[in-house]
Design a protein around this nucleic acid. Structure first.
Lengths: 328, 328
DNA sequence: TTTACTTATGAAAACGATTTCACATCATTT
DNA sequence: AAATGATGTGAAATCGTTTTCATAAGTAAA
């Protein structure tokens, strides 16, 4: 393991000069510069990044918090973020919270102990009250999810609009009895429900509590929802779901019970994941332009890191779009 | 930003004592220990990890190289690895190579510059000849993919067996005309093809070159394969594919051309991804126990980091299993 | 010819932790 | 009573960089 000292003595120069060459500082003669570069090449020298970071307090790493990396929405999001980060020479640290409040909190130590330059929260388990004290150690921004109480930049979609247009679509198709599935009580879910309720109330419909479900995430969860609906005396004719996975589960289970989709039950998904176009019937869904969200969020983060004075709270809204297929 | 110095002076003790408390060293009186802990708590002190790492040359980070995190196989693999790593207090750095040789090579600088303690390669773009020089900077192991020339530990599946049992299954169903789709020329693909060829040759069949395809990865690639097959004068009755995504693409496109699966064309997938059980017909596939692979690989890595002397090259083979559904 | 500025270089002081070494103190054994 | 060993503590060296400071030489302006 060679150090800057080895390079310096090999080149017959001081550590300071070697450091200047490494960091492209001015005031180094071409001649010595070449000598240093040759010495570095011959030794196969690479600066020890722990030492560099101890000095300049930069890590070139961004922590990205997601609740479930196996959710295609998140893996696509992380993929986009990593791509943007790599262009600027940054690495992404994957922080998979597994919907665990404690675990999420642990990841904030990364910021405090200077292991990352910033944190992008694409999922949120703790309230802003808990997160806020960490802001003094580095930039924290929200992406997709957020806590309304927070005064930091958030890159997100108009989920109220998403809930509204999805529901409106079902209403336009003539449905009056609409069930509703959401994930946890996040900002995204909450806003979508506001949109849902807005649409149904406008249509003069009172939502049926027995058809409102929470904490529904996976394909299997979706299957169970259908079984629950099926067991009811009065069943809905349409379901609004929070993800294509859930929609897929409901559809498959419905078909296994010989229900026709969309004739007997219309189902709308969310996210426009690959499976949405593969199922039979193809799932009507709402596209979130995941890649754009990821890139935009990473852009904002890198900008803040590069120039902290630009860290003024912004509310960046990206477009959302209904994709009509055959499940409704 | 408080340092160990601040804690020391607040507690009226030396830095050395504070450090001993942090690292749970013996020979610190209970009284001073409490004093230090109280001082740390009051200041909200967290050790600067760059400084710690500069001293003890450990980072508690593992780089995981994958070619496409959006591939469910990889996101599940990374998920499992992260879970195991977190238990031991390690973080995972996501290295998405995007099938780019240069990009993969860049990630090895992480090891050289001491930003990670080890690298798990779940995809491989460069030959072992190129990778080998990095082994002196830290442990490198293969997971799933590997270069046969390498003398390092690899955790993998018997892909020859996978190719063999999948093909044998098609043969047992009476198919004689079998097409074959693979990804790139990786070890996994190569071995699977060996298994495929073994099975067909045993059955006395000569593989048809026009039905052998390479670099097929995505759902869209699968669709295109069907269109190509469809355009041939002599078409196969079955297709062996390298992933469920490809199988899904072929099946959907076939159905759009009014072919029945499996009657007109049998399709077998690989990986047992969630979509495999969702499609109609459900896809016959080969389960790779992705979670087990990830945990096992991370286990091996952590063991090596903890005790480098155990770093003897091993070839760890995990089981593989045919899951028969309706697409064959 | 002086003055002022730019260019070029190295010695030494940071950065914030851990560890070595030296030195106490106290208890136990000879 | 002396010798030995276990326990407890702090000063200072160390890890590998970057940056400050001092200094010197060369060049342009006055």
């Amino acid at each position: 393991m060679y150090t800057i000292k080895d390079v310096a003595s090999k080149a017959g120069l001081s550590q300071a000069t070697v450091s200047r060459v490494i960091n492209n500082h001015p005031y180094v003669s071409e001649e010595k510069k070449r000598a240093v570069q040759q010495a570095m090449a011959e030794l196969g020298y690479v600066p020890n990044s722990s030492a560099q970071r101890l000095r300049n307090l930069k890590t070139k790493k961004i922590a990205v918090l997601v609740s479930r990396i196996v959710n295609p929405f998140f893996s696509q999001l992380v993929d986009a973020m990593e791509k943007r980060a790599a262009i600027s020479g940054f690495q992404v640290i994957l922080c998979n919270t597994r919907i665990d409040r404690e675990k999420e909190l642990e990841y904030f130590q990364l910021l405090k102990s200077k292991q990352v330059d910033g944190i992008i929260m694409a999922s949120v388990e703790n309230t802003w009250e808990v997160i806020e004290p960490f802001t003094k150690y580095g930039p924290i921004i929200y992406c997709n999810e957020y806590d309304p109480a927070a005064r930091v930049t958030r890159v997100r979609l108009d989920q109220i609009e998403g809930g509204y247009i999805g529901t409106k679509h079902l209403l336009d198709k003539g449905h009056q009895k609409i069930a509703y599935c959401q994930g946890n009580d996040s900002s995204v879910s909450t806003n979508r429900r506001i949109g849902f309720l807005k649409a149904v109330t406008e249509a003069g419909i009172t939502p049926e509590p027995a058809w409102m479900f929470k904490n529904i995430f996976t394909i299997e969860d979706g299957r169970e929802i259908f079984r629950k609906l099926h067991a009811l005396s009065c069943t809905p004719t349409a379901v609004f779901t929070g993800s294509d996975e859930v929609a897929a589960g409901i559809i498959k289970e419905a078909q296994q019970h010989s229900w026709r989709v969309p004739e007997d039950l219309a189902v709308i998904g969310f996210d426009d994941q690959p499976i949405a176009a593969l199922l039979d019937p193809q799932i009507t869904t709402i596209n979130q332009f995941t890649t754009d969200i990821g890139i935009t969020a990473m852009n904002v983060m890198l900008e803040i890191i590069h120039n902290p004075s630009v860290n003024k709270p912004q509310d960046i809204l990206l477009p959302i779009r209904l994709i009509e297929r055959q499940s409704t």
